[in-house]
Design a protein around this nucleic acid. Structure first.
Lengths: 329, 329
DNA sequence: TAATATAATAACAACGTTGTTATTTTAAAG
DNA sequence: CTTTAAAATAACAACGTTGTTATTATATTA
């Protein structure tokens, strides 16, 4: 049986309510007694009973994270960041890999103070609610929860803008054209609009469908592109994995990045620097995403507002070593 | 404020203790009243307070999983399986991505009934304990917790045995030779012993160091191998990712699997079937690993024994479509 | 030295459950 | 109709905390 404050009270010769106050550093108890109680508690190896604290305080100091698509490894950095960010607030994070509805059920029972959802939500038809604030990342739950989103179109605009400033005219977009993926679609549209805006030539070969998000998909798409008649001077990769494939395919063809061809990737994650060629990329830095998600969640937690906020984050371009100025005019 | 059994009692015109019994399907309450109480509870949207239940029952019906190395994606299938297996027992799983010691701290506060650790544990010097049973997967915590391990040597033996039965003599092992990775080392040794056992020729080129666990590592290692003078008739890949790289490198060289070259991969995970070529592989099926971890944990939970058990699982070979009989004698 | 203010501690209710014990209601038997 | 047994329900303590209120000990003032 675990040690309780009553055990400590008995051992220290005081009442258990005094022990409670002492351990919570209340000013209502004499420094001397406080010190003694702390000592006894430490010696007896006291661990507060979380269930009891929760029952009376109605707070668990825990945030639940719902991540049913474990396989999407792109999120793993974000998860780690979120964990840190939540820890900073003195809270703990627990993770559930179940679908949103049953995860929320679990979290209700665990009495988390708030939750974060990664799930795209396309699979759940019935409206679900939670008795605590929920922030979702990515689209899908707009009707139910607050949302942190990314301005993908702006991201592609920045990529194209940057490349045209370096003198590039012939730019190819490599991404997954699956109609189900709204993020990919937005990137596609953003690229197209940017090309039009800068009066850059757009034709069939300006868009290459990787037909998948894994890096072998980007790899194969790039091989196909390089076998074609005309080679662009720059490529925009629509995700980290796809861009990694692009890099490998290009290097295997004995072309040099960025001398022969420039690349801008999407996703502003640290891994971009550890590719064979550190990749210049656009995207919202994960630290920022994590910080925004957590701060929105805690704001809702403090103000106790059930209001549903949507916030679109602006991407930034991070220069690394994969783009060069085009010399021939 | 959430609905409690007292609210239900008032609404149904009975005492709250009767409500408690009715909701727990106790035989001490009349079926008729039971039915009525259930109806009222449902209508009022009652959700039991977990903290209160926990406080009195001393059970949380929750298992904690510690997985600090989120980046190791090979575990993700296992995590999903564990989740299912735990759900089957009527328990829930929560996940922590913090290091083992602070995760256990969190789990103590959440009052989980048991925990599973993936962490290799090479980073934690101080002995740590937990007030609940803990099962670890992979090596490292032998001194503290029960362990589910895999007989990697037997796995390699089975791979070689299978290939030699098909008539292969020239077999190459591709894996990571990092001295830090005890699993990889065991596979290496197992392969070597098996080759000796069957009197198969072993030379320098029989072992190729991928110097990494990602599939590009296996890819490059294979390319190097294929550029060499003599080509083996079969390859053993030391992990899923490495084997995936092997497959891609071989196919790009316009060799046909398994006509020109046979492959056996390590890791018996479903993804093996979805590679370009469904890969014959050795390893303990993830479902079995998950089942073993969970059943060991629950056995300890039931018997309340702090005894530290170690169990080594025997791998099996699953035939798919990557191996062929060698015709020339 | 008694009256009063203040600091320190103790006592106790509450949180929402479960399990045990006490009471009431109902049915069966004489 | 009582008396007795059984079934159904109600009452209540307990779980380990926290916060509020009541009590005691100590210091201050007249």
């Amino acid at each position: 049986m675990a040690i309780t404050i009553k055990d400590i009270a008995r051992a220290a010769g005081v009442s258990y309510s005094t022990v409670s106050k002492a351990l919570n550093d209340s000013p209502l108890v004499q420094p001397k007694t406080k010190e003694k109680i702390h000592q006894v508690a430490r010696k007896m190896g006291y661990e507060p009973n979380f269930a009891a604290q929760q029952l009376v305080s109605k707070q668990s100091k825990t945030i639940g994270l719902i991540w049913p698509t474990l396989e999407r490894t792109a999120y793993s950095t974000l998860v780690t960041q979120l964990n840190n960010e939540i820890k900073k607030q003195g809270f703990s994070m627990i993770l559930s890999v179940n679908p949103a509805d049953s995860s929320l059920e679990l979290f209700k029972r665990c009495h988390v103070d708030g939750a974060i959802i990664f799930d795209e939500g396309n699979s759940v038809p019935s409206p679900i609610t939670a008795p605590f604030p929920v922030v979702s990342y990515g689209a899908g739950w707009q009707d139910h929860f607050s949302l942190i989103d990314v301005n993908y179109q702006a991201a592609m605009f920045k990529a194209v803008d940057y490349l045209q400033q370096l003198g590039h005219h012939s730019i190819t977009f490599i991404g997954d054209f699956s109609p189900l993926d709204s993020h990919q679609k937005e990137k596609y549209i953003g690229f197209q609009q940017a090309m039009n805006h800068f009066n850059l030539p757009v034709h069939q070969q300006s868009f290459i469908n990787s037909a998948g998000l894994e890096w072998y998909d980007g790899y194969q798409a790039t091989k196909r592109m390089l076998q074609g008649s005309s080679r662009p001077s720059a490529v925009v990769g629509a995700s980290y994995d796809i861009s990694a494939g692009v890099v490998r395919a290009i290097r295997e063809t004995n072309l040099i990045i960025p001398k022969d061809i420039s690349i801008v990737g999407y996703d502003n994650i640290p891994q971009m620097s550890t590719l064979e060629v550190p990749l210049t990329s656009v995207g919202v830095p994960v630290e920022l995403i994590a910080e925004q998600i957590v701060s929105l969640l805690f704001k809702q937690l403090e103000t106790d507002s059930a209001e549903q906020v949507t916030k679109k984050l602006e991407p930034v371009l991070t220069e690394r070593n994969s783009c060069a100025r085009v010399n021939n005019p």
